[in-house]
Simulated scan of single mutants.
Amino acid sequence: MSMQFSVLASGSSGNAVFVETESHSFLVDAGLSCKQMDKQFQQIGRDPAKLDGIFVTHEHSDHIKGIGVMARKYKLPIYANERTWQAMDGLVGEIAVEQKFVFGMETVKTFGGLDIESFGVSHDAAEPMFYIFRAGGKKLVLITDTGYVSDRMKGLISNADMYVFESNHDIQMLQMGRYPWSVKRRILSDVGHVSNEDAALAMSEVIGDNTKRIYLAHLSRDNNMKDLARMSVQQTLEAKGMPVGSQFDLFDTDPSIPTNLTAV
């Protein structure tokens, strides 16, 4: 069974990833409005009405903005852990009971030949978790919105074929930027977001022989730039003896332009 995906949107303004096999298709988060999400699907030639469900990572608005409307418009199943459901109460409007499913942390759900595993991250949300997709012997890892990458996370996500990996900010840009110190401290904390350098250090410990592509995701609008993130990650990886462009490549993501549908 083959698997392909597209990062529909990634950044401070909204996040969503589309994953499909021959028999199923899912969305991870819907951080844009339903109208914007429909446009993203048009750009990749897919119909959101044919989704088999949406997996929620956590309740922050840049991950759930369109979930309620999409659930009601397309009658989609929504999967989230119990604490995230509680935290979303009042944020996504009414969702029918028959569309609400609990997906516990550190569990696996199987849809045909597609296995989806949830794992916890360190972020200032109720119970944030991300996902590993496995199909046809291939492994796709989605990991953003974490203040650090623990040894446990590294063990779970190691040697994936492809990663959508947070590279949120440049530390110097953040420190010199316009954000109040309380916000800077939150971003830099263990429940904030990983920097370009810390992301690359974590990548250097999980990249394996199977790894072919890494998509740098959830870049801060104010404290990062695509070229800077890519350069910082590449320099750190190459300093670790892992040259970009030989075994694996780095790719950008964008707040409004989906990545090409790519086979894992």
Rank of each mutant, 00 (worst) to 15 (best):
I171P: 08
W85A: 02
K226T: 15
Q99I: 06
T57E: 06
A71W: 04
D38M: 13
K138N: 07
F251I: 01
M242G: 07
G137P: 03
I143E: 03
A16E: 02
Q175K: 14
F130Q: 00
F251N: 01
R178H: 13
M70A: 14
I67Q: 03
C34V: 10
S232V: 11
S220Y: 13
R230H: 08
D252T: 01
V191Y: 06
A49W: 02
N224H: 12
F18I: 05
K212Y: 07
D249S: 13
S158H: 11
Q36H: 13
A229W: 04
A80Y: 03
I207G: 04
F103L: 13
I214H: 01
H24V: 08
Y131M: 05
E197T: 11
D89V: 01
R221E: 15
V121M: 06
E98P: 09
E238G: 07
S150W: 14
V164C: 11
L8T: 00
K240H: 14
F26Q: 01
N159D: 15
G68M: 05
H58Q: 12
E166P: 09
I143D: 04
D222P: 02
G68E: 14
M129S: 14
I257L: 08
F5D: 00
E197C: 00
N260S: 10
V69S: 15
G137M: 12
D170M: 03
A30I: 13
K109I: 10
Q234N: 07
F248H: 02
G66I: 09
Y215L: 10
M231V: 05
G66N: 14
V28N: 11
R152C: 13
E22R: 09
F18T: 07
